[in-house]
Design a protein around this nucleic acid. Structure first.
Length: 438
DNA sequence: TCTGGGGTCCTAGGACCC
DNA sequence: TCTGGGGTCCTAGGACCC
């Protein structure tokens, strides 16, 4: 007796490009790509760009000349815009089921139960049409008995000639022989959860298609691989192993890192970057209501040129007690950085990772802290702190300076007091960068 | 002196995802 | 010259304990 529950995967086609096209008609019917930070890599491609053979993740400088000659257009990414359109798209999708998992910025699973009482294809058609009309984003919809099958179906909805026109593929409505033929057309490496290594090993064992994997003996799969691969095999067979996650669990680690536009060789620049990343990570931490008790700082030299001296140091610092305070975290990160940095290397990337996250305990007020780092570090820490405060305002318990901070800022050590920031302090806080600069 | 075995916790690293 | 960022899960191996 087959279950009365199906999964649908709804995802935006070339999402970032589609978002840009909503507001710029010039971008339609021509090759468009969106680039990552510092205009480094291609992270989204229109169909026209895909037709030119532009691969996902290609460094843009490698294709720039030919691509532009072919009439291609490249845009820097605008994540604020994408996040906004995403949340509007997600709320429309959410109207079609009370069980929804927002899986990524451009994808959502929904669950439909009792579907014998309504027409799934009709439902999917209406959903697709509404997102297109209200948001202006074209979506593909795949329907299957498990999340993995919904993923397979979604891929077919975008690539298979039989489904492409409508952008919908409902595997549950197809007769078994047809469904099996479709699984047979799906290379095993295209299945959700199977990457390059996995597919190479599977192919070595004679398992080349999604159908092959679905028919493999699952204990044997587990023995050859892991429980993860076994689950995938079962899911392809229609046995649900992966649940819908309606509420995202709190993050177990928080990372903030960036590649630099140009290589960085000096400590002050690194210090500024690390302060900024730490402040951003601390914000995310407070936003989810957690505290951290360990922090990793890392640096990377570019990996692309093997003849260049490599340096990929990292250090993990344990904190005395769990905290979510920007200041304490910036200080720790600064200490870590001092230990990592070696002059002579051309660094390409730096980052901070918060670990051992725990739910936030009751707040402790009126602590005093002494900052023993040098003046440059103090400044960076303070600026990052202010930056974080300005964005955090009114959302969380935050740090504020003790009276006289501005006067004492040039002395060592600083004294900072923790408390709630009242609106009256706001303007003074926003004046601090000027004071510090002077 | 003989040299057990199971459990837990932590970390590093691999693989994968979008 | 120029090559993204942020996650999860699993396994293996070491430390430590009883």
């Amino acid at each position: 007796m087959p279950s009365d529950t199906v999964f649908a995967l709804v995802d935006g086609n070339a999402f970032y490009v589609s978002c840009e096209r909503v507001f710029n008609l010039q971008l339609r019917q021509r090759p468009v790509v969106v680039l990552s930070n510092n205009d480094g890599c291609v992270v989204a491609r229109s169909d026209e760009a895909k037709a030119l053979g532009i691969a996902m993740g290609t460094p843009y400088f490698k294709i720039k000349r030919e691509y532009e000659k072919a009439g291609g257009l490249a845009l820097s990414s605008n994540y604020t815009l994408y996040a906004d359109l995403s949340s509007r798209m997600m709320s429309i999708i959410g109207e079609y089921s009370d069980r929804q998992e927002v899986y990524s910025i451009d994808e959502a699973f929904i669950e439909w139960t009792g579907f014998r009482h309504f027409n799934l294809d009709e439902m999917a058609f209406r959903l697709r049409q509404q997102v297109q009309r209200w948001i202006g984003i074209p979506v593909g919809i795949g329907i299957g008995q498990t999340k993995t099958l919904a993923k397979v179906a979604n891929r077919l909805a975008k690539t298979h000639p039989d489904f492409k026109a409508h952008g919908i593929c409902n595997l549950t409505a197809l007769p078994s022989p047809v469904r099996e033929a479709l699984l047979k057309e799906t290379p095993v490496g295209a299945v959700w959860g199977i990457g390059r290594r996995g597919s190479a090993k599977l192919e070595g064992l004679g398992i080349r298609t999604a159908l092959d994997l679905s028919q493999a003996h699952s204990p044997w799969i587990r023995q050859q691989f892991t429980v993860v691969m076994e689950r995938t095999a079962l899911e392809l067979r229609g046995v649900p192993c992966i649940d819908l996650e309606q509420v995202p669990p709190p993050k177990q680690q928080i990372v903030s890192s960036r590649s630099f536009g140009q290589r960085v060789t000096d400590l002050p620049t690194l210090r500024q970057a690390v302060s900024t990343y730490t402040a951003r990570a601390a914000e995310k931490l407070r936003y989810q209501g957690s505290e951290t008790s360990a922090l990793t700082v890392f640096l990377n030299t570019p990996p692309y040129n093997p003849s260049e001296p490599q340096h990929h140091p990292s250090v993990t610092l344990r904190l005395e007690r769990p905290t979510a305070d920007t200041l304490i975290l910036c200080q720790a990160a600064g200490r870590g950085l001092e230990r990592l940095y070696q002059p002579g290397y051309r660094y390409q990337k730096a980052g901070v990772m918060l670990l051992n996250l725990t739910p936030k305990g009751p707040g402790q007020l009126s602590l005093f802290d002494h900052v023993d780092t040098d003046r440059a570090a103090k400044r960076e820490t303070l600026l990052a702190l202010i930056d974080g405060l300005n964005r955090d305002m009114g959302r969380e318990t935050i740090w504020t300076a003790a009276q006289g901070l501005t006067r004492q800022a040039q002395e060592t050590p600083w004294r900072m007091q923790r408390g709630a920031l009242s609106p009256a302090y706001t303007t003074r806080w926003s004046d601090l960068p000027k004071v510090m600069a002077g």
